[in-house]
Design a protein around this nucleic acid. Structure first.
Lengths: 323, 323
DNA sequence: TTGAAAGCGCTAACAT
DNA sequence: ATGTTAGCGCTTTCAA
C-alpha cells in the first residue's frame, strides 16, 4: 500500500531514522489507515528479543507487595517491555519447577518481590544469563540486581527511639526469619549499644493479621508482665495490639507502648497514632523497574544494588509526654 | 536424541494420546535429560493460539482490586494461559490507544478490573472477537462477560438496616458515579420504601483516603447538624470518620452512627466495629478467571454474567443498644 | 502411528 | 536508503 517492501515497513517502525522522511510518511500513513499492528510474537521469534519481564509476587493482598508491584508497572509504562505475572509463589521458596514454567516465554528479565533463597533456584537463575531483580531483602550477595529496604537500619532506628524514650522491658513479636531477621538484629544492636536487650522475642512465622496482634498482646503480657513496649513486625499486628490495649483499658503509651513496621495507610490515623518505620514500597518497585530498564537497554552505569531509604515515624503510640 | 522427528516431539508434548506409549516414553526421557523447554513464542506464531490474557487493573494499591487480581492469578495457576499486565488505566476511561497497545501480543482474552464505559473502546473490544471479562460493576449490557457485585442490593441492605435501627437523618458521602451509582440508588430505594430519603448526599469523586473521611465528617455535620448516621462509599473513609468522631468526643453509634462499604480487613477490628458490606473481591477475581477459562476452552455452558453475592455486616458502629 | 514439507510474520544478514 | 533471501522454532496439512 505504501509501495515499499516489508522490511522497509519494519525499519520505519523500529528505526525510523534509517528511513527517508518521504518513505516514512507513506508507511506511517498506510499503517494508520489499515490499523496495522505489529505481531510481537513473530517479531520476538525472529529477533530473539523477548519483550517480557516475568514478575513473581507472593501475594498482592500484602499491601507492601501490591504497592511495589504497582511501582514496577508504572516504571515500565510506555516501555517496550511487558510484565507477565508468574505463577505466584513466595520468593523465599521458589523452586526450579516454578522457574521453568516461565521459560517458554523467553523472558528478557525476571523480578522477584522478595529474595530467592533456594540455592538450586539461585544457580538456575544465574545460568539463565538474564537480568534478575530481587526486592526488599537485605542480603550481601544478590543473584544479580537488588533494590532493598535497609531493614537492619530500620530495626536500629526503632531501637534507638525506644531507648531514648526510656523503655526498658521491650518485647518483639512477629516474623523472625529471612526478611525480618536483619530488622531484629538491628533492633538488638541498638539496644545493646545502651546495655540493653530484648526482654522477650516471640517468633510468629505464619500469618500476621489484626486478630494475631490482638491475641499476641495478651500472650506477651502473660510472659512478660512488666513489659513497657511491644514492637511488632507489621503495622497490621500493631494495630491489633492497639485495639486490644483499648479493650483492656490500658493506656497507650503510658501503660504499654506499641510500635509497628511498614507505615501502612492507617498508621498515622490510629489513636494514638502508631510509631512505625516507613519503607516506601511503591518507590522500591518503581526504582527496580527503572534500574532494570537501564540494564536491559545496555546502560553500563546501571547499579546492581540500590537502597531505598526508610524513615522512622515516631508517633504517639511510643512518645511519652515527658514529665 | 529420541530418534524421532520434531513433529513427533510436538505431538508427544501437546497430544500424548496420539503417540505410541514407547515413543512417548523415549521423547519424555529425552526432554527430561536435555531440559528442553518449548518455545511458546514460536508455538503461538505457528498455531495462531495465543497464551496471553491481558489484565487491566487500575491500581493494585486499592485493596479490592488487588484481591480480585490475586484471585484471577490463582484461578489461572496451572493453566496454559499466562496473565499480562496492561499499561494500567481505569477501566472507566480506557481509550482505544491503550487497547491497541496490547494487540501486538494477540491476547486470547482481556480482563478489566472495572467496567469499560468509553463507547469507542467498547465497540473496538467487540470487534476483536475475543472474550472480554469485566468486573465489579452492575451493568445490564456487558461487552461480553461480567462478574459483578450487586451494588444496588448492597445499598439496599444498608438502607433497610439503617431504617430498622431507627435512623432518620441519613447522610451519604463518597463516589456517586459509575460503579457507585447503583449502590446509592439501592440505598435510596430502601429508604423510599419506608417513606424516607437521604438527608444529605455529598459527592466525592476523587480520592477517598482516611484523611478524607476525617475531613468530611466535619463537613457533614456542618451541612446536616442533626445527622444521625453517615454512610461512606468506602471503609477507609468510614474509619477516618470513626477516628474523627472519637477526636470530637462523639459517641458512636449513640450520637452519630457510621457505616462503610467493602469490609476491608480492619472493619471487624475498629472500636466500635464497623458496619459495612462484604464484597468478596478475591472470589470475584477467582470466579472471573474460572469462567473465562471455561469459555476459552470452548465450554458452551460458560455463563456470561455471574453475580457474587455480598453480605451486610451489621456491627457496632450502627447497632443501637435497644432501650 | 509417524514423517515431510510448508509457512506463521517478522527481521538479520547481506546485497544493491 | 531500500530490497532480497533466508530462517527463527514450531505446528498445520498432507502423505505414508
Amino acid at each position: 500500500m505504501a509501495g515499499v517492501s516489508p522490511i522497509t515497513v519494519s525499519r520505519a517502525l523500529r528505526t525510523p531514522e534509517k528511513v527517508k522522511q518521504a518513505t516514512l510518511d507513506r508507511v506511517l500513513e498506510a499503517v494508520a489507515e489499515t490499523g496495522y499492528q505489529i505481531n510481537s510474537i513473530a517479531s520476538s521469534l525472529r529477533s530473539g528479543q523477548s519483550a517480557f519481564v516475568t514478575v513473581f509476587v507472593a501475594s498482592l493482598q500484602n499491601l507492601h507487595y501490591a504497592a511495589a508491584t504497582q511501582g514496577l508497572i508504572d516504571a515500565f509504562k510506555g516501555s517496550r517491555y511487558h510484565l507477565m505475572f508468574a505463577q505466584t509463589g513466595y520468593a523465599e521458596d521458589i523452586d526450579v519447577e516454578l522457574l521453568r514454567s516461565m521459560l517458554p516465554f523467553r523472558p528478557a528479565a525476571v523480578v522477584f518481590s522478595g529474595i530467592v533463597r533456594n540455592p538450586v533456584a539461585v544457580s538456575f537463575l544465574k545460568s539463565l544469563a538474564i537480568p534478575v531483580m530481587e526486592l526488599w531483602g537485605e542480603v550481601p550477595d544478590p543473584i544479580d540486581m537488588l533494590v532493598m529496604s535497609p531493614a537492619r537500619e530500620g530495626g536500629r532506628l526503632i531501637g534507638e527511639h525506644l531507648v531514648a524514650e526510656g523503655y526498658r522491658r521491650i518485647a518483639y513479636a512477629g516474623h523472625t526469619i529471612s526478611r525480618s531477621l536483619p530488622r531484629i538484629e538491628g533492633l538488638r544492636e541498638a539496644l545493646a549499644g545502651h546495655g540493653q536487650d530484648l526482654a522477650l522475642l516471640l517468633p510468629m512465622e505464619g500469618t500476621t493479621e489484626m486478630a494475631d496482634g490482638i491475641a499476641v498482646f495478651d500472650r506477651i503480657l502473660e510472659q512478660l508482665p512488666d513489659c513497657d513496649v511491644m514492637v511488632f513486625g507489621t503495622d497490621v499486628m500493631a494495630v491489633g495490639a492497639l485495639v486490644r490495649a483499648q479493650q483492656r483499658g490500658m493506656s497507650v503509651p503510658d501503660q504499654i507502648a506499641i510500635a509497628g513496621y511498614g507505615d501502612l495507610f492507617f498508621a498515622a490515623h490510629t489513636m494514638p497514632q502508631l510509631t512505625t518505620v516507613h519503607m516506601a514500597p511503591y518507590r522500591i518497585g518503581e526504582t527496580a523497574g527503572k534500574q532494570l530498564q537501564r540494564r536491559l537497554n545496555g546502560d553500563p552505569e546501571a547499579e546492581r544494588i540500590i537502597q531505598v531509604p526508610l524513615r522512622l515515624m515516631a508517633r504517639g503510640s511510643t512518645t511519652r509526654r515527658k514529665a
